[in-house]
Design a protein around this nucleic acid. Structure first.
Lengths: 220, 220
DNA sequence: AAATATTTTTAGGTGAGACTAAAATTATAT
DNA sequence: ATATAATTTTAGTCTCACCTAAAAATATTT
């Protein structure tokens, strides 16, 4: 079954908002995520439901079906493989790849993705640490905690940062935080949720709560 | 000015049908080329004319403007760079690249194309021998003759074959004809327009007129 | 030059995917 | 429990790119 570009984007949004298909998603949340109006979402839900890629009851929110999940994961696979290509082969920075990959992910050619995957050496994660789903729609979700959840004294390794926020990514470049960096929480500031950390044993710096909740780590 | 995918395809068609913008193009020819109906073409001509990318008078055919030519050449540039990528980096065959490049050519990101161009080593022709326009819309059109135009005894070097006909390209693979091959016309058959040729001094074979008129050569 | 054929345009309509405004449903607060 | 607020859906439009059928313009025959 071939979905339109718009339909693919809806499915992807639902997949993400439902955290990998586990929770129900509201009409408003989808509208917000896709920068459209709730009325448009309702229309589309009827259509996607008819196609069997979501389960939908009026006023009751949306659940992605197995079929839908597979399609969403395939789009995500393509997005992340293209991100790897843009960074590793073309020399883009990690804050530049998301928007272009948003376009490339809709190119239709399974063979192209097979060959791209091989060309890139079968990567398992994209430049932001997100796991790349397999051809069969399997995805390896790692247990992770946000930097804000760590306690004073705890140590973690950065394994994931958001791909869609260039300004944040550029800031991480500035403070020299990258995937794989070891981060130690020295002090948590009660008042504003900011944290004092050291990155790879460098001199400590403060990070705002807004930033630290977006940085995902594996406990060490 | 941003054109839609459909508008870009119309411009590209007009550019090609007008042989690089030189001749007038008829409504029917465009409809045939784009597999659409003449009525749809008339609609689009009004729109493209309003945008200043073509000169159009009702019932009088269409001429592409300088502005339009530049846009068309940019799309063609992208198409041909992607074809090089697919063939040289991903290992596609030359008969497989056209359809995928038709999709990739509409990706919008000047920086992407700059970087892709560099990654490919600034190629000047695509896998079918078509010249790749520069960023500024310049294109190096070589004088060339179709194999059918050669006389008996004449020798030519293959410099261009059509990119959009996979069956033909696969046939050329079979008879081991590639870009750069030296082709000698041994005999021209009056009756059906076929020609007896030798490719790179191999044993002679017959080619139908339909094939030979699509193979473009530089006289040697 | 008139008749006929071809090409092109206009008129009106369709589906996709968006919108606004209003109605219906569900959730929250009093 | 009722009133109010928030969310969601429906109803009715809009634009885009296509369509068919009919009309208009141009080209070709006789």
């Amino acid at each position: 079954m071939e979905l339109s570009l718009a339909e693919e984007n809806y499915l992807k949004s639902i997949y993400h908002l439902s955290e990998n298909g586990d929770t129900e998603v509201s009409t408003n949340a989808i509208a917000e995520d896709l920068q459209t109006k709730p009325a448009s979402v309702s229309d589309m839900m009827r259509k996607l439901s008819d196609k069997g890629v979501i389960e939908y009851q009026k006023y009751k929110g949306v659940h992605i079906s197995d079929k839908g999940k597979k399609i969403a994961l395939n789009v995500i696979r393509k997005h992340r493989l293209w991100e790897v290509f843009l960074l590793e082969k073309l020399g883009f920075r990690w804050d530049e790849v998301h928007d272009i990959a948003e376009q490339l992910e809709h190119i239709k050619s399974p063979l192209l993705i097979k060959k791209l995957d091989a060309f890139l050496g079968y990567p398992s994660v994209d430049p932001h640490g997100d796991p790349i789903p397999t051809e069969n729609g399997e995805i390896n979700i790692q247990p992770q905690k946000s930097l804000m959840e760590l306690n004073e004294g705890e140590l973690g390794q950065v394994i994931n940062v958001p791909d869609s926020n260039p300004a944040l990514l550029r800031h991480l470049d500035q403070i020299k935080m990258k995937l794989g960096s070891l981060v130690k929480v020295i002090e948590k500031v009660e008042f504003d949720g900011s944290v004092l950390i050291s990155i790879d044993n460098q001199s400590p710096i403060y990070l705002s709560g807004a930033i630290s909740e977006n940085i995902m780590l594996k406990l060490k």
